[in-house]
Design a protein around this nucleic acid. Structure first.
Length: 196
DNA sequence: ATCAGGATTGGCT
DNA sequence: GCCAATCCTGATT
């Protein structure tokens, strides 16, 4: 089933860990999808979070209701997608950092310009390119829009690599502020993450 | 009005 | 490992 808003209205770290193994699906021209295998939590009073300095036009979706997408452009060329979490107005979110390809793989390969399954969606900019996620999805609901997240048992009886592995909790990637906080999560044994 | 820098990636050394 | 690409945001003048 599609995850309901109540799934996202919980504690952000809990949601981040529970998102591992869920299926991110984008239905546009075609349907492309992948299991979420790596995430990072961004919290209130977290200097690394885009919401840290208050609401602006860019981060507005982060302060909106849980269960909506926060999509932003980074370095002028890449796009990243977040899931808004917690009570409305707190500005917390979970960044989706890597997917294990699960469906529509030939379209993901075409968009990415490679056939290597390990290179299709193993990074926050790669996965948005593979699924065709663009800025117009910023602020859209994840239950009822073209971008959706399904619970692990949905749509397939397969499971991502390392499904039974322990959850590894470590520091977030690419940030300069609050770089020591352990808010990145993935499962031991999955090779589709962005880096070890 | 100006400007530094960023939750990245891919190509080159 | 290093660095350019590329552009918007937010902070400062």
């Amino acid at each position: 089933m599609i995850l309901p808003p109540s799934f996202y209205e919980r504690d952000t770290v809990t949601v981040a860990k529970d998102l591992l193994g869920c299926l991110l699906v984008h239905r546009n021209e075609t349907a492309t999808m992948g299991w979420i295998v790596e995430v990072e939590a961004y919290l209130r009073d977290d200097p690394a979070a885009h919401s840290y300095r208050g609401e602006t036009p860019r981060n507005r979706a982060m302060f909106g209701p849980a269960g909506h997408a926060y999509v932003y452009r980074i370095y002028g060329l890449h796009t990243c997608v977040n899931v808004v979490t917690g009570p409305e107005g707190t500005g917390e979110a979970v960044l989706v950092r890597a997917l294990e390809p699960a469906g529509g793989i030939e379209f993901m390969q075409a968009r990415r310009g490679t056939d290597d399954p390990l290179a299709l969606a193993s990074g926050p900019g790669k996965l948005t390119q593979a699924l065709g996620i663009t800025m117009d999805l910023d602020g859209t609901p994840l239950s009822g829009g073209p971008l959706q997240i399904w619970s692990p048992e949905s749509l397939s009886d397969r499971r991502p690599e390392g499904t039974d592995g322990e959850i590894v909790q470590t520091t977030r990637i690419g940030i300069t502020k609050a770089a020591d906080l352990p808010l990145r999560f993935y499962r031991n044994g999955n090779r589709y993450i962005s880096r070890r």
